[in-house]
Amino acid sequence: MNLMSAIGGAVMFLFLAPILGGLIFGVDRVLTARMQSRRGPPILQPFYDIDKLWHKERAFANPVEVIFTSGYLVLIAFSGVILFSGGDLLLVVFALALAHTFLLLAAYAANAPYSIVGAERELIGVMVAEPVLLLLAVGFFMVTESFFVAEILSKTVPAILSLPGVFLALFAVLTLKLRKSPFDIATSHHAHQELVKGVTSSLSGRTLAKVEVAHWYETIIILALMFLFFAGAPILGVAAVVVCYFLEVLMDNLFPRVTWKMTVKSLWIITVIFAVANIAVIGVYGGVV
């Protein structure tokens, strides 16, 4: 791996991802509002929120939350650093799982019933996404013979040609990762949550701000993974990511009352039908690339 480009990618990610992530969420909120024939907040609203949260009183249900949420933020950012420095996809998946464990522990340690139920359901979400992310790495390896992002990017034929099923499964998982749906896990800004913001319900001020920023990082990571399917055709890739994100917002507004049980079932059915079948086909016949 080229050292300079690796460090460059990592530094770019660390500084630009929050900006881009925040903007995406701002656009998302405006878009959602327009779909509901409202005006919606300013595009920079997510940044105002973070700034406000940062200046709130330092309060917590349990002091260890401060450590756990910091761990969550640092490890999510670290996963992104691995990804954007051209590192190993599997390691990215493992680091993400470790990061989520920290968020969950913050919620478990809060001693509050809503927080704990939120943590349990968030954990279900993590569990549902895990096989898709693993199969994604595996699929890329089967097609490009490398787990390393740097090498996957150097291919000229986009992997989407061989891995359409895995891409669809990742698209389905994005619904979950944006935290808007299902409404009984969600922690987004919609007014339709069941668990008073579940996993984040006991966090406030700076701890909440850290989780929000980590969430921006994570969204960029997932979108980057989507982009990876189009390595070799970057313009198409960006277009695909934009279209997918738009479809996510649309879907969220069309199906605002999805429960976690429905999510687990539907996402795993999608995973099995598309991702697993995709992997099996490549395993038997080989990929296009």
Binding site: R29, R38, R39, K197, S202, L208
Partner: peptide, 23 residues
């Protein structure tokens, strides 16, 4: 006030339902 007609989210207002998040 949350509905499209009044749309308080214009002002960045969110109905959080959670004291830890509220101002």
């Amino acid at each position: 006030a949350l509905t499209p007609l009044y749309d308080v989210e214009r002002f960045g207002i969110i109905n959080t339902g959670n004291p830890a998040h509220a101002d």
